[in-house]
Every structure is written in structure tokens, then in C-alpha cells.
Write a protein that binds this DNA or RNA. Structure first.
Lengths: 247, 247
DNA sequence: TGATACATATCATCCTACAACTTAACTCGA
DNA sequence: TCGAGTTAAGTTGTAGGATGATATGTATCA
């Protein structure tokens, strides 16, 4: 709490910057659940901004369920379980272990998504998935166009599950991963472009056409594991395909 | 866009209400990606609030990545894929089909969580899970205390996966479900209290102790399906446990 | 036709003022 | 002395006005 805006860094509007700063204080444990934030006036002075800016920042944080404000009392940090939304800290993804974990979560979601899509897809879903696949095949190198087509491919599969929450969660996770990789490239332009592997996508598509949930799941799992490795992330050992204890 | 705040309903601060209204317009497709919102001044007049209130509302929406504001131009709706966070509309969960879908997603996440926890848990995890279990067992009826203990049980299992994203996602989904059920009870006080089924929890715990991922997954899946049914939600047919095609 | 200047529209920030709510302190009566 | 009621102080919630910054469109000039 000794910071001024000059030390906050990053771009964007002042409210966004104040909110980001406070958010980091909360996530890092500097401000524990139950802690009362400084008053709006104090924050205003501390950061050298108007009270309106502080209020806008606080509005953001309360919409996220990170804090609650009580009129006449102050603003208090809430427990993470009370959050009204899920966010992923882009900075945290610079740590490759966190990237691993996010890929693991993605693998869980996408493997199930593919299996459900294989069961529930209609012709219109297959058409959309094929269109994304064709778009991917038309690219010679793994560039933004390919990345967009790849994301679209995954999103269309998730759409075919008929479960909008699955679609939302997968879209979100894929987008966060994409952003992280994108920013890594901006920082390090020599970062190698990753080659597209359309064969893996084709196998997923074929399993969907065949309506084979197990094949779809396996193909998708292999694809996500492969995609992770291609960006330098090694997923934790595959599970239960070796245990053979499952019924 | 013909609404006034009187028609917005719900409680809370004016910015929150304006943001919620706009958010619903966006989610419902009334405001498509690329659409330009009315100016701040127009929204201020339309809703009969000050421009500050409108700005705070917009700050919330832009923090979510639902809109982007360009100085001198206006505020524009962004595509859902650009969202910086995941939210679940509590109103949408009043539709039982959406509740089904959310439970399905929960089942996907929690089954995997249990399996990973069975592989990765340490003694400290088991202790925490047991503590939550004991707390649940001490309750004679399914009340808030039991619900909290149940949520804690699930969160501790997710923590044992060692993947904070899994933990975050599961916590979030469980909390949204809990809130939805809680509000349903406020609206309809005659809604039956649901009995706690500690036996299912014990089975999960035992599989964790035994370090048996398959058993943990199966027990968790059965528990989630049972929990859903106990609140009147029937999950889509179980998948792949009958296909037997998996390797 | 392209570049430059100017006007207009709109967001971003700041400031002031008052309303509404909460909490602590004070006063008064039993 | 204790409890209830009142008042004062502190803090958030809202409103309104002003100025700065940015983007876009239009007019003018070379």
C-alpha cells in the first residue's frame, strides 16, 4: 500500500490500473479475506487520482466478488469462494507450471467435450467443424489465421455438445492459453512458430463423424497433449489408461 | 433499450443494476458483437441516473471484456470469445435445462478431480477432507452448515489435485449451484430440504485413502448424479460406461 | 488527390456537493 | 449504573459540472 501509480505499470485507464493493483494485492495475500480496504479518499490520495477513478476500480472488483462495499463502513476483501467470476492471471501463466496446469484442465474439458460431441452432433455441427478444419488445412504455416481456425474448431466441437457451459469454459481456457502464447511471442520474437498438425484434427473429426465417443476422446486427448508439447509444456503423466482397474 | 430502471428489477447499487441490464441485453443477442452502445449521456438520460453511475457500470463490463470503450468514439460490444472472465447468469439457472447442463459440467470436472486427487493426495489433504466429512456427519439435517461442509469437502478434494485451476473452476461451479438452490428456497419456502447422503461422501473418501483413481472417479460421479437428482435435476445419460469400446 | 487544420462528438478524469447508511459517543431517564 | 435514544462523525452512493484527451468527419489548400 505504499505504491503510487507510477509503480503500477501496464497501460490502460486509471480505474483499470487501480483495480489491477488492488487485485494483485488480494491475490498475493497482502490483503486477506475480511481485511478492510483503505477508504476511497485514502486510496484517492495514495494513488494521486480522483475519487471517481477509485470508485470505478472498486466497482470492477465488487462485480467480480473480490470485495464487498458497505455504505458508511468501508470495502472488505471477500473469500475467493465468493467470487462471481473466474479470471486467469496472465502474469501467472508465464510460470510454465501454471501453463501445465491450465493445459491439464483444458485436456479434461476438451476430451469430454469431444466424446459428448461424438454422441450429440448433428450434421450442422459436422459442417461447421469441417469448415474450420478446411480453413486450417489451407494454411501453410501456423499463423494467426491458423490459430483462429484451430480455436474455432475446438469451439464448434464444444458447441456440438449442446451444453453452453462446456462451450463457454472451453472457449475461455483456449483463449487464455492463446493470449499467453501470443504475448510470449511479442516478448521474444525469435520464438519459433509452431507447425500446425492437421492430421490430429482430422482424426478427431473422423471420430465425430463416426459417432465414436471413445475414439473422439482419445484423439482429442492426444491432440491436446501434442499441442502442449509443441509449445514446450509437458503434461503430467496420463491417467488411468495404464491402470486398467476401471470397470 | 426502452427500459427504465424501474423495469430492471433486483436490488443493489445503481451501477450494478445498469451493468446487469446491459449484460442481459448483450447475452440475449439484443446487442450483438460490434454494436455500438448509446453514449454515456444517452444511457444516463435513459435510465434516469447520473453519468458517473453509467461510467461505473461500463467499467464493470469492460473489465469483463464484454465491451470495449474507445475515447471519442463510443463503447462497443465484444465477441464472447474476447471475454476476460467467466460468469454464470443466476437467472438462467432458473431454467432446469441450464441447471442440468451446469451439473453435467460439474460432473466432468469433479470426476476428474477425484481421480487426480486419489493419485496425488498427501496425508494433509486426507486430513482436511476427513475434517470436512466429519463436519458433515455431525449434521442431522441438510442445512447451511451441511452445505458449507459439503462444499468444503469438494474443494479440499480439488485442492489435492495440486492444480489450482481445477480448484478454482470447481469452487466456482459449486458456488453457482449452491446460490441457485439457495435462492430457489427463498422464493419457495416450502421447498423440501434435501437430506444429506454422507454414505456417498464416505465412499469417495475411502477411494482417496486407497489411492484408487478409478474408484474415486466412479464414486464421485455417482455422488454428483445423486446430488443432482436430489434437487430435481436428471443428468443426461451416463456416457461410455456402457459402450465398452474404450481401451 | 493528398495533406493539414478545424470542428464536433465522445470518453477519461477531476472536482464539488449532498444523500444515505453505519458506528461511536453522548445524554437522559429509570 | 445501565439501557435507550439522540447526535456527531465517518464512509459509501449518487448527482452534476467542468476540463482534458482522443477519434472522426469536413473543409481548405497546395
Amino acid at each position: 500500500m505504499k505504491q503510487r501509480l507510477a509503480a503500477i505499470g501496464t497501460v490502460e485507464t486509471l480505474p483499470h490500473r487501480v483495480a489491477a493493483f488492488l487485485s494483485r494485492e488480494i491475490e498475493s495475500g497482502e490483503l486477506n479475506p475480511g481485511t478492510r480496504l483503505p477508504t476511497e479518499q485514502e486510496l484517492s490520495e495514495k494513488f494521486g487520482v480522483s475519487r471517481n477513478v477509485v470508485r470505478e476500480a472498486i466497482a470492477q472488483l465488487r462485480a467480480d466478488g473480490m470485495i464487498e462495499a458497505r455504505q458508511g463502513v468501508g470495502a472488505f476483501v471477500l473469500a475467493p469462494e465468493q467470487r462471481a467470476s473466474i479470471r486467469i492471471d496472465g502474469e501467472a501463466l508465464k510460470d510454465s507450471e501454471n501453463m501445465e496446469r491450465l493445459f491439464e484442465l483444458r485436456c479434461i474439458l476438451e476430451a469430454e467435450s469431444a466424446a459428448l460431441a461424438a454422441e450429440r452432433r448433428g450434421q450442422e455441427h459436422l459442417d461447421a467443424i469441417k469448415a474450420a478444419l478446411d480453413r486450417m488445412s489451407g494454411e501453410e504455416r501456423w499463423e494467426e489465421g491458423s490459430i483462429d481456425a484451430d480455436l474455432l474448431f475446438h469451439r464448434e466441437i464444444a458447441r456440438a455438445t449442446g451444453n453452453s457451459y462446456i462451450h463457454t469454459f472451453i472457449s475461455f481456457v483456449c483463449e487464455q492459453i492463446r493470449r499467453s502464447i501470443h504475448y510470449a511471442r511479442l516478448t521474444n520474437p525469435l520464438h519459433d512458430l509452431v507447425e500446425v498438425n492437421v492430421g490430429e484434427h482430422v482424426r478427431i473429426y473422423e471420430a465425430l463423424v463416426a459417432g465414436d465417443p471413445s475414439a473422439a476422446e482419445a484423439a482429442m486427448r492426444a491432440h491436446i497433449i501434442g499441442a502442449a508439447e509443441r509449445v514446450g509444456v509437458k503434461l503430467p503423466a496420463a491417467r488411468r489408461k495404464q491402470s486398467g482397474k476401471g470397470k
